[in-house]
């Protein structure tokens, strides 16, 4: 399965520095990279209402949602509410890690959740040299 980041691929493009010519190349490259990262990742468990990360924080790593549901929320914008389920094995937080921006939202477990934590240092090793 090609794991898709919830940012829609923005982080991947920034990691690679360019857009591959064909979509199939993009998907296969994403899959290869995610699988490499996931091999080095570790499973974290969260109970309902426990936080993965907080709004305005710098990313310590990224997360692949394997089981359960995660809610994203902004403290100063009650209208922003997004729920992510594990069905498509989405990646959470990769875009912030790659860009170095701080999180625009907090992420909290809605149900018991399992996530594969992908350490920042491992992800940065995959970045092309500048």
């Amino acid at each position: 399965m090609a794991r898709i980041c919830i940012c829609g691929g923005r982080c991947y493009l920034q990691m690679m520095g360019k857009l591959p010519e064909k979509n199939s190349e993009l998907i296969s490259a994403i899959k290869k990279h995610w699988d490499e990262l996931i091999d080095r990742g570790q499973i974290l468990s969260y109970q309902p209402d426990q936080y993965l990360f907080y709004e305005n924080h710098k990313a310590l790593g990224a997360y692949l949602l394997c089981k359960g549901t995660i809610a994203l929320a902004k403290a100063d914008d009650p209208s922003f509410k997004k729920t992510i389920s594990a069905e498509s094995q989405p990646i959470i937080g990769m875009d912030y890690l790659v860009t170095g921006d701080t999180y625009d939202y907090s992420a909290k477990a809605v149900t018991s959740a399992e996530l594969c934590y992908l350490p920042k240092s491992e992800i940065l090793k995959l970045l092309p040299p500048k």
Binding site: Q42, I43, L44, S45, Y46, Q47, Q50, Y51, Y54, N56, H57, K58, A59, L60, G61, Y117, P119, K120
Partner: peptide, 20 residues
């Protein structure tokens, strides 16, 4: 990586694997 945490925020939870 340095972050600023507010009162009652949690750094890590009991039962999770340590990652740093």
């Amino acid at each position: 990586t340095t972050n600023r945490y507010k009162k009652k925020q949690v750094i890590f939870y009991e039962g999770n694997v340590p990652y740093g």
